[in-house]
Design a protein around this nucleic acid. Structure first.
Length: 811
DNA sequence: GACTGTGGCCGTGGGT
DNA sequence: ACCCACGGCCAC
């Protein structure tokens, strides 16, 4: 029997002669594309009330809505449900579609206690049970069958993961980007507006295809007869290139659905799938586009989802993300004019083609750059790239747990019912502790933080839904969280605690290797492990989670508060002054102590910390500032600035790092903070401020510096309070511009009376003479710097340049 | 229909 | 003039 070593990329199933067959698509070690077909039977778990139910289940079959269903076997297995041993029944049915049918049926039976894992997708069940991890080497035995398929199909007789867990390398990526006919002010209309140009970029191809001729020397531009011919060329290119991954930027919701619709309209057969299928759309909250046998990597989904915390950007436009990650970009065409140029001035189309190709290129480069992260996620979670690309944090954690539960003989708890969900949503967790700072400028600060505080608490105290006990338990060694009146058994490692511990220790090992040598794949692995570890606490407190546990989530935060406050007390006893603390960090003033003493402080703490918990010395800062809050007289939490030893600034919470503040206010605030932290030079900062205020009054500043950006977070009609950005969104909608939740609204406040929203205007429609100097001075600049100058005793009047007069009066 | 958690600051509108 | 809900966005 021939043996094949191959890397699976995509997975589907089909019913062949009435039986379900899994199809794995991938590439062999020597680069050949193949598919592997493997018989597999769907099943789920039932916990019986009475043992006799087994026989009743075995004989279950019938018909519903003209479709027959049947149970093919029932097997008794010893399993665990939240740590408790149960006699479970593995109920195997003949087809995947029978699973929900049979589940609903037997759920009502008196002799069935509960039904589990009936909602795990069939292909995912297969991957878990066969221990197959996509993009990781798999060994298959079998013969090539005679199926209608673009690539050879091996009928598997045996399949198993390879021993060395080798990862797929050198994947072929093809980036796609289209430009469509889009008259100004009209919405997207796939039925009536054609695709004008389509760009592809891959390792061996970089080309724009368009169907209007114009004179050009660009060899990258290819002319075809019409739109149908463009789609034909796209089909040809995909078939020639045989990519493992097709990538795009919002290609889930735009490029691929658009291509699909136009192909349908023009009757172009886009049979690019390995099984001759076309682009398929899965409609959910937003569309997912799929091609059989090829992984579709939508870069925006990954950047906005899984990597959100690691990539901070004001906007998720391709340009913004590319400049953040790749440090390049900038195209200079007005895309709004494309339709007009296409109709009336085709000789001017070349820059649009360049733009189109540049977008495909940027997308390709982003996909290449992010692929290590996504690959590591695939290896960690064990689901195909297509799925990992689009997963939320909770799905990530849950998929990981479903992959791990077998090692603990656990069966997943059921998803909550609507009623249970409503109950869970009513309670609120108490969160972290934040120490209120005393406003002031400080020198010689040391900052500490607990390494992965919440994950390390979960692992070190065995916090897990299956180890929860009553607070007054007599169990030996049980750890009591008195704040939450609950205890945790220490007799046996809890499922989630063990899994979290494994994630943390794996990350520590990776970090150790990285200390010796740089490796982008290991960097990516460390990052994904950290993201995963940090997601467990949120998951435990997430009402829709299968392994939801209010007690666990509340205990994690309670212990977090306990550890941080104990550390604060110890720091004070050791002679430091505690300036600030938030959740897992502590800011100390050295009070004349040495840096060495500051570093040594962590040793005194770590000596008494359990398990994997560890306080880390984050660093030394020559100066730092905390300010008072707007209303109360106390210090503002979550707003501070520090000066690093290398001269750079750390700014947290201030307007300078917030999106919905004008550029000018951010600039001024940062400048003032810098002057004060570097030299405590408030006089110089004040002079600078006066200069800027003068400039604003004299209308010397560009409108662009006055722009305020605010996100529209819901449909315009559902707002109770109409703020400036909502008013602008309304205006835009009135002009026929498509405005949806998620849009970043830009506006400038102009002169006049009344509400701010009535004076807000689109930046493009605002002249430099029109912006309201008083608004920008009193509502943007002054509030941004007032509390900083207050530390030096400067009043608002002084900031506005009225100080001299006031003093004269006082004299 | 999907959605990881809480703590916190502050501007604006909407009401008195 | 004042209070407070709404809304956005940030820290962790």
């Amino acid at each position: 029997m021939p043996t094949f070593h191959f890397y699976p990329i995509d997975i589907t199933y089909r019913i062949v002669s009435g039986k379900p067959v899994i199809y794995l698509y991938g590439r062999t070690k020597d680069g050949q594309r193949i598919a592997v077909a493997d018989r597999f039977d769907p099943y789920f778990w039932a916990i019986p009330q009475k043992k006799s139910v087994k026989e009743r289940l075995e004989n279950l079959s019938g018909e519903k809505d003209g479709e027959s269903y049947s149970v093919t076997s029932v097997e008794e297995k010893k399993k665990r449900l939240l740590g408790k041993e149960v006699e479970a029944l593995k109920v195997t049915v003949s087809q995947p579609k029978d699973v929900p049918l049979v589940r609903e049926l037997i759920r009502e039976w008196d002799d069935i206690q509960s039904v589990h894992e009936a909602d795990i997708l069939f292909t995912r069940r297969y991957l878990i049970d066969k221990k197959i991890i996509p993009m990781t080497l798999v060994v298959v035995e079998g013969e090539e069958g005679r199926e209608e398929s673009r690539i050879p199909v091996i009928a598997a007789t045996a399949i198993r993961p390879a021993e060395d867990e080798e990862t797929m390398k050198g994947l072929g990526i093809l980036a796609v980007d289209i430009e469509t006919y889009y008259p100004k002010g009209k919405g997207i209309d796939m039925d009536n507006n054609p695709i004008l140009m389509l760009a592809v970029h891959g390792e061996t191809i970089s080309r724009v295809i368009t169907w209007k001729r114009f004179a050009t020397k660009r060899r990258s531009i290819e002319f075809v007869q019409d739109e149908a011919a463009l789609l034909h060329r796209f089909r040809e290119i995909v078939l020639e290139e045989q990519p493992d991954i097709i990538t795009g930027y919002f290609s889930d919701g735009f490029d691929l659905p658009y291509i699909k619709r136009r192909a349908e309209k023009l009757k172009v057969n886009l049979d690019i799938g390995a099984d001759f299928s076309g682009i398929s759309l899965k409609k959910g909250m937003d569309t997912e586009s799929k091609i059989t046998g090829i992984a579709h990597f939508d870069v925006i989904k990954f950047v906005r989802g899984g990597l959100r915390t690691s990539i901070a950007t004001d906007s998720y436009s391709l340009n913004a993300v590319a400049s953040k990650l790749l440090g390049e970009t900038k195209h200079e065409v007005e895309l709004d004019d494309l339709a007009e140029v296409w109709d009336k001035r085709p000789e001017k189309l070349e820059p649009y083609c360049d733009y189109n190709l540049q977008d495909a290129l940027l997308t390709y480069q982003l996909a290449e750059k992010l692929l290590p992260n996504l690959t590591e996620l695939v290896k960690l979670i064990g689901l195909p790239l297509q799925d990992c690309n689009r997963m939320s944090f909770s799905q990530l954690v849950e998929s990981f747990l479903l992959r791990k539960e077998g090692e603990f003989d656990e069966i997943a708890p059921e998803k909550p019912t609507e009623h249970e969900l409503a109950k869970r949503r009513k309670v609120r967790l108490q969160g972290a502790f934040v120490h209120e700072p005393t406003p002031g400028l400080y020198h010689d600060l040391a900052v500490y933080d607990f390494r992965s505080l919440y994950p390390s608490i979960i692992a070190s105290h065995n916090i897990s839904p299956d180890t929860v006990r009553e607070a007054d338990t007599l169990e030996e060694g049980a750890f009591v969280v008195r704040e939450e009146k609950v205890a945790y058994s220490t007799a046996k490692k809890g499922f989630i605690a063990a899994v979290v511990e494994e994630v943390i220790t794996r990350r520590m090992r990776v970090k150790d290797i990285l200390k010796k040598k740089k490796d982008p794949f290991l960097e990516a692995r460390a990052m994904m492990l950290k993201i995963l570890a940090n997601s467990f606490y949120g998951y435990l407190g997430f009402p829709s989670a299968r392994w939801y546990s209010f007690a666990c989530a509340a205990s994690v935060t309670a212990l977090g508060r306990r550890y941080i406050t104990e550390t604060i007390e110890k720091a004070e006893k050791a002679g430091f002054k505690v300036l600030y603390s938030d959740t897992d960090s502590i800011f100390l003033s050295l009070q004349g102590k040495s840096k060495a003493a500051a570093k040594k402080f962590v040793d005194d703490i770590n000596e008494h910390l359990p398990g994997l918990m560890e306080l880390e010395y984050e660093g030394f800062y020559p100066s730092g500032i905390f300010v008072s809050a707007k209303d109360n007289k106390g210090g503002a939490k979550k707003r501070y600035a520090l000066l690093r030893e290398d001269g750079s600034l750390v700014i947290k919470g201030f307007e300078a790092v917030r999106r919905n503040t004008s550029v000018i206010a951010k600039e001024v605030q940062e400048h003032v903070l810098k002057a004060i932290l570097e030299k405590a030079d408030d006089k110089k900062a004040l002079n600078y401020l006066h200069g800027v205020i003068k400039g604003i009054r004299e209308k010397k500043l560009a409108v662009e510096k006055m722009v305020i950006r605010t996100r529209l977070t819901k449909p315009i009609s559902s707002y109770d309070a109409i703020g400036p950005h909502v008013a602008i969104a309304k205006q835009m909608k009135g002009k026929g511009i498509d405005i949806a939740p998620g849009a970043i609204i830009r506006y400038v406040v102009t002169t006049g009376g009344g509400r701010i929203r009535d004076r807000a205007k689109l930046p493009e429609a605002t002249k430099q003479s029109e912006y309201d100097a008083d608004y920008y001075i009193n509502n943007q600049i002054i509030p941004a710097v007032e509390k900083i100058f207050e530390v030096f005793g400067h009043t608002k009047e002084e900031l506005l340049g009225k100080g001299a007069q006031m003093r004269l009066l006082e004299f």
